[in-house]
Simulated assay, not measured.
Amino acid sequence: MNRTMITATNTLNQLQKQLDIIGHNLANVDTNGYKRRESNFTELLVQQMNNQLNPARDLPRLTPRGIRMGVGAKLAQSQMVTTQGSLQETNRPLDFALTNENQFFKVLVQENGEGQIRYTRDGGFYVTPVNDREVMLVNAQGFPLLDEQNQFITFSSQSKEIQLQSGGVLDTGDGQFINLGIVMVDHPQYLEQKGGNLLGMPNNPPIPETEILRELTGIERQEISLQQGSLEKSNVDVAKEMTDMMNVQRSYQFQSRSITLADQMLGLVNGLR
């Protein structure tokens, strides 16, 4: 296989990954609180061929001397874009929209028999009965929402109207005030997608967890920005994603055509007599 085929094959594999990312964005265009991902490419290793026997005699030039032969490109990073999505008014008392880009709710999920804290921007919550007297606040998948002490949020089943106060405080209407568990994510790129529109910490974070996110407690709760009766939509721009998809498809066709041409050239060489 010649270098042209190697370069095209390497790039085709990475373009397929970019198509997967774009397809995932488009599939979640109507997912509340979803943050789109953007891919960045970088060049693979190149080979420098110095074809000038006497560089001193080379004419003045603006480009580097010699020939640089690459072997394709690779997907360097899939970066989460945390820009604020549009707000949709629902007038539902258990719908909450975070209006600060880097703030997330905390929910508890069960994985392999252990409880794991996950983070989400989807503020569409519901109540599920705990017993005859209490109900618990959960998300759309039934995972319990956590307060600032990482405890389940429960209140009386007789509560008629829930009001949101400043600082992310829920007034259940029966004299109970609950501080919603909100975190500020300073480095969202370190979070991993865990499925179900949830994010989580990696198994081996490259930096301490306290540098990635911090709990908003005490006086820091003044930073919390919430809007009741609204939901944050995804920040996916369909027009941009479709344009990116067409550009990737063109690049994919170009690399495929390169392999075809290289194969035809090899066929001509092998057919020489």
Results as ranks from 00 to 15, higher is better:
residue 60 P to S: 14
residue 63 T to Q: 15
residue 63 T to V: 14
residue 64 P to W: 07
residue 64 P to A: 13
residue 65 R to M: 12
residue 65 R to H: 11
residue 66 G to A: 05
residue 66 G to R: 05
residue 67 I to Q: 14
residue 68 R to G: 04
residue 68 R to Y: 10
residue 70 G to W: 01
residue 70 G to T: 03
residue 70 G to I: 06
residue 71 V to N: 08
residue 71 V to P: 00
residue 71 V to R: 02
residue 71 V to E: 01
residue 72 G to K: 03
residue 73 A to N: 08
residue 73 A to Y: 03
residue 74 K to V: 00
residue 74 K to Y: 07
residue 75 L to C: 05
residue 75 L to Q: 03
residue 75 L to P: 03
residue 76 A to Q: 14
residue 77 Q to P: 01
residue 79 Q to S: 14
residue 80 M to P: 00
residue 80 M to S: 05
residue 80 M to Y: 00
residue 80 M to W: 00
residue 81 V to E: 08
residue 84 Q to R: 11
residue 86 S to M: 11
residue 88 Q to V: 12
residue 88 Q to K: 14
residue 88 Q to L: 12
residue 89 E to T: 13
residue 89 E to I: 13
residue 90 T to H: 07
residue 91 N to R: 13
residue 91 N to G: 04
residue 92 R to K: 15
residue 92 R to F: 07
residue 93 P to I: 12
residue 94 L to M: 13
residue 94 L to W: 05
residue 94 L to D: 05
residue 95 D to K: 11
residue 95 D to M: 10
residue 95 D to S: 10
residue 96 F to C: 13
residue 97 A to E: 08
residue 97 A to G: 13
residue 97 A to K: 12
residue 99 T to H: 09
residue 101 E to C: 00
residue 101 E to G: 01
residue 102 N to C: 03
residue 102 N to P: 00
residue 103 Q to N: 09
residue 103 Q to F: 04
residue 104 F to M: 15
residue 104 F to P: 03
residue 105 F to Q: 08
residue 106 K to E: 04
residue 106 K to M: 14
residue 107 V to T: 12
residue 108 L to F: 02
residue 108 L to M: 14
residue 108 L to Q: 15
residue 109 V to S: 14
residue 109 V to A: 15
residue 111 E to N: 09
residue 111 E to A: 11
residue 111 E to D: 12
residue 112 N to W: 01
residue 112 N to V: 06
residue 113 G to L: 11
residue 113 G to H: 10
residue 113 G to D: 09
residue 115 G to T: 02
residue 115 G to M: 02
residue 115 G to R: 03
residue 115 G to A: 10
residue 115 G to V: 02
residue 117 I to D: 03
residue 117 I to W: 00
residue 118 R to M: 13
residue 118 R to T: 04
residue 119 Y to C: 07
residue 120 T to G: 05
residue 120 T to F: 04
residue 121 R to L: 09
residue 122 D to F: 02
residue 122 D to T: 01
residue 123 G to T: 06
residue 123 G to H: 02
residue 123 G to D: 04
residue 126 Y to F: 14
residue 129 P to N: 11
residue 129 P to K: 10
residue 129 P to Q: 13
residue 131 N to E: 06
residue 131 N to W: 08
residue 131 N to C: 08
residue 131 N to L: 11
residue 131 N to T: 07
residue 131 N to G: 08
residue 132 D to E: 15
residue 132 D to K: 13
residue 132 D to I: 06
residue 132 D to P: 03
residue 133 R to I: 10
residue 133 R to T: 14
residue 134 E to V: 05
residue 136 M to P: 02
residue 136 M to Y: 02
residue 136 M to D: 01
residue 137 L to F: 02
residue 137 L to Y: 04
residue 139 N to Y: 04
residue 140 A to L: 05
residue 140 A to G: 04
residue 141 Q to S: 13
residue 141 Q to L: 13
residue 141 Q to R: 10
residue 142 G to R: 07
